[in-house]
Nucleic acid binder design. Structure first.
Lengths: 220, 220
DNA sequence: GCCAAGCTGACATCTGCCTGACACGGGGCG
DNA sequence: CGCCCCGTGTCAGGCAGATGTCAGCTTGGC
């Protein structure tokens, strides 16, 4: 999972980032709303943690604005004195709120809860051209056939599907699929892309090679 | 199914927990609101049973607060004298209420009702291909035979049936079947899946293995 | 035409899964 | 009270499917 933390208190921010990294997540930090906008325009996050009191503006306005354009879950961080605003906050489109100070166990639990709620029973299938990819079930449906994927193929396709159209390098893919200390050759990715292609071809899903750079998933 | 019981009367609590365990469910017990918050932050429940009179605060406030952030069904337990509050309670977001003293049969019935209501069509039986699964009775009918399941098998199948087609990891299944402090090896799940398979095979219900991830229930 | 990057069939390996056997405990029955 | 049976969870051995590497081949770019 990839997090964006928007928080101007440097000390707190560092602690949170450290903890998220420790848990094996990717995490970026923005100290201002302007920075946050920058990050959001270049990367693709799973969850945003947003402090509402920031030097260059009110986080809540940012929230409405943000909600209008994206569907990225947000957990709002507020000081205890602002609790009364919580209903407003939730109305503005936050998925949850957390009052400072909080402990990390609680933060993690909330994150998990939000991510689960988002991706849980609401069946998040991903449309890939004619085909329908269901990561939770590990299947792809097209026409009237259902085809099953195995572990690695599944996770690889998941990465591609969440970054449809973007070019992903082999090293990026290795980072997403394998644990840090695993020593894996880039050839492994080539092999898996090949296996995926063979299965996805009939479904009209293509993984294009961008020579020297990486791969890109396209649908017809 | 996994329950959280929030109740300060130790005797009653123990009896309820014992009964839930006996039924093959997972159940944790909190005697205070603080404890309840702890449990909620570490585990993932299907249903909460909440007494409103607790030593460290009013359960109803807890309920509102809780409702703002989570989507976990709640059955409130109240003393007979507090019946008049029941409308309030339901307004606050409880799914049902139960007046003490209650008997266990009623408790179970209410729990089933709430869970059923939550998970879609309010049928008591679940269709699995050709077969008809009745979680209440613990039986499966197909063709003209009825076959009985044991406790654990029953609960396991119940979880699978509620997430038909989805891949469930062994640790997820353990979470659903066993309480937090139970130390259970993943092999137990393998064994139960095996036993279930043997019984369900003739009924046309399959539990597929997805190596490295988990299991998936499918019907033909 | 040459080189680097990418593709792919074949293979050894390993680890995740399955299963028969068993030990344990509780409840019912004699 | 003791016996037995049933439900449950663990264990060890064995199997095989999934996985990653390799070597040789193909493709694309210059």
């Amino acid at each position: 999972m990839r997090y964006l933390l928007v928080e101007d208190n440097r000390e707190l921010a560092e602690a949170v980032i450290a903890r998220l990294l420790l848990d094996g997540h990717a995490a970026d930090h923005a100290a201002t709303l302007a920075e946050a906008r920058d990050w959001l325009s270049v990367a693709d996050y799973d969850l945003m943690l947003l402090d509402v009191m920031l030097p260059d503006g009110d986080g809540r306005q940012f929230l409405t604005e943000h909600r209008a354009t994206r569907d990225l879950p947000v957990i709002v961080l507020t000081a205890r004195s602002q609790i009364s605003d919580r209903v407003d906050t939730l109305d503005l489109g936050a998925d949850d709120y957390l009052t400072k100070p909080f402990d990390f166990a609680e933060l993690e639990a909330r994150c998990r809860a939000v991510l689960r709620r988002r991706s849980g029973p609401s069946r998040n299938e991903i449309r890939l051209g004619e085909a329908l990819f269901d990561p939770g079930a590990g299947t792809i449906d097209y026409g009237n056939t259902t085809l099953g994927l195995r572990n690695r193929e599944l996770r690889l396709l998941e990465v591609f599907a969440r970054h449809k159209g973007q070019i992903l390098s082999k090293s990026q893919l290795i980072d997403r699929l394998f644990s840090q200390d695993a020593e894996i050759s880039e050839n492994a990715i080539e092999v898996y892309v090949g296996r995926l292609r063979r299965k996805l071809e009939p479904a009209g899903v293509r993984i294009e090679t961008v020579r020297g750079i990486g791969y890109r998933l396209t649908t017809e």
